[in-house]
Amino acid sequence: MSEHTEHTHGHHVDSPKLYYGTFALLTVLMLLTIGASQVHFPGGSLVNNLIAMTIAVLKAALVVAIFMGVRKGSGLIKLYALGGFVWFLLFFIMFCDYMTRSWEPVRGWVPKDAPVAVDYPYVTDTPGERPAHEAKAEH
């Protein structure tokens, strides 16, 4: 039996107070975003960004839960509302790429007696020192 028959027929209508309250809270959060963006927090712009995004997520959660009625929705609707978070997968994996792209191989990764077939100009013991095989080539 599909799910549709398992629900009761009547639906509960929220009191207008809930909507007025949510609206007031959203407005306060909006003013908070604008206010926070004008302040330089200790810790730099990262903190600013975190605050701005946290407030945005809070606002979004309020709109989704109360205005869009997911709070009272069926489990299925909640599941689909959460489906939007697949976006974070795209975001997360792509940032993994961009943030690890500049990681460099370190000395320990190249076996000591490996023939120098591939040039690793960045494999150095200390910054500024020239790679061993390059120095050897000059002799």
Binding site: I93, C96, W103
Partner: peptide
């Protein structure tokens, strides 16, 4: 949805990403 990077092994994406 988790494997698309195997089309990009030689594209210049992070090699650590490639391993994953």
């Amino acid at each position: 949805f988790l494997v698309w990077g195997h089309h990009m092994f030689v594209s210049g994406q992070s090699m650590y990403q490639g391993v994953v």
